[in-house]
C-alpha cells in the first residue's frame, strides 16, 4: 500500500474505532448495571405486562415493516419510473416523516383522527389509543425510510432490462415482478430491515397517538418510559437490553437471508 493511502485508511480506522467503541461501551454499561442487580432486572421480565409488551412490540413492528415495504416500494417505483406533474412535490413530501420530530407525527395523527371528519372512522373502528394506532404511527415513519432506500435502488437500476423483458413478452407488471424486484432484492432487504428497526424503536408518535396504556398499547419503548417514570432504572435497562438482543437477532437473520450485498473490497 502506498504511504499516503495508509494514512487515509488509518484516519478512517480511528473514526470507526471511536464510534464502534462508544457503541459497545454503551451496551456494556447496560449489562454492567443489570448484572449489578440481577434480581430486580429479572423480576421485570417475569411481569406479565412486560411480556405482553415484548409480544406486542414484535407483532406491531413486523406488521408495520411489511406494510411499509409494500407502500414505500410502490411509491418509490412510481416516482422513479413515471413522469407526472408535481412529482418533485411528492418526492419532497415523502421526506416529511424523516425530518419532522417524531412527536409532531404523533400529534398530527391525533389531530387528524380526533378533530377532523376522520374521527368518525376512529369512533367506528377504535384507532386512537388502540393497537391500530401503534401500527399506523410506525408505518407512517417506516414508509418514508423504505421510500428513500427503494428510490435510490430503482434510480440506480437501468430501465433497459425492464423494457427488454416487456419486449420479450411480459406486461409491465410482470416485468416488474420478474426483473425489477429480484434485482432490487438487496435494497428491498435493507429497506425492510430499516423499516422494522425504526418501527421497533418508535416511541414519540406511539406515546402521543396510541398512549402509554399498560396492557393495551404498551410497546417496549413505552415500557422503558414507564419504568423510568416509576424510578425503576434497572427494569428500564433490562428492557432496553432485550431490545438490543432482539434487534441483533432480527437484523442478522435479515442479513443472512437477504441478497448478497455486492460491493468492491480493496485489498
Amino acid at each position: 500500500m502506498i504511504r499516503s493511502s495508509r494514512y487515509f485508511v488509518t484516519v478512517m480506522g480511528i473514526m470507526a474505532l471511536i464510534y464502534v467503541g462508544l457503541l459497545l461501551a454503551m451496551v456494556w454499561a447496560h449489562v454492567a448495571l443489570v448484572s449489578g442487580n440481577p434480581q430486580s432486572a429479572w423480576s421485570t421480565l417475569t411481569r406479565p405486562e412486560i411480556q405482553q409488551a415484548i409480544l406486542l412490540s414484535l407483532g406491531t413492528s413486523l406488521l408495520s415493516a411489511v406494510l411499509s415495504v409494500w407502500i414505500g416500494t410502490a411509491i418509490a417505483y412510481l416516482i422513479s419510473r413515471v413522469r407526472f406533474p408535481f412529482r418533485p412535490l411528492v418526492d419532497f413530501l415523502m421526506d416529511l416523516p424523516i425530518f419532522l420530530p417524531p412527536l409532531v407525527v404523533g400529534v398530527s395523527l391525533l389531530i387528524l383522527f380526533r378533530q377532523t371528519p376522520l374521527s368518525r372512522l376512529d369512533d367506528l373502528f377504535g384507532i386512537a389509543f388502540q393497537v391500530p394506532a401503534i401500527v399506523l404511527a410506525q408505518t407512517i415513519v417506516g414508509v418514508a425510510f423504505v421510500y428513500r432506500t427503494m428510490k435510490a435502488t430503482f434510480d440506480s437500476m437501468p430501465v433497459r432490462q425492464e423494457e427488454l423483458a416487456q419486449s420479450l413478452g411480459c406486461s409491465w407488471y410482470s416485468a416488474f415482478c420478474k426483473i425489477t424486484l429480484p434485482q432490487a432484492s438487496p435494497g428491498l432487504v435493507t429497506a425492510a430491515a430499516i423499516a422494522w428497526a425504526r418501527s421497533f424503536g418508535e416511541f414519540g408518535p406511539v406515546l402521543v397517538f396510541a398512549g402509554s396504556i399498560r396492557g393495551r398499547t404498551e410497546v417496549m419503548p413505552v415500557s422503558i418510559y414507564l419504568e423510568l417514570n416509576s424510578g425503576n432504572l434497572d427494569g428500564a435497562v433490562m428492557i432496553a437490553l432485550i431490545m438490543v438482543v432482539i434487534a441483533a437477532i432480527v437484523l442478522s437473520v435479515t442479513r443472512l437471508t437477504g441478497g448478497v450485498q455486492r460491493g468492491g473490497v480493496r485489498r
Partner: peptide
Amino acid sequence: ALVLIFLA
C-alpha cells in the same frame, strides 16, 4: 405479526 399481536 398478527399472531403475535393476538398473543399479546
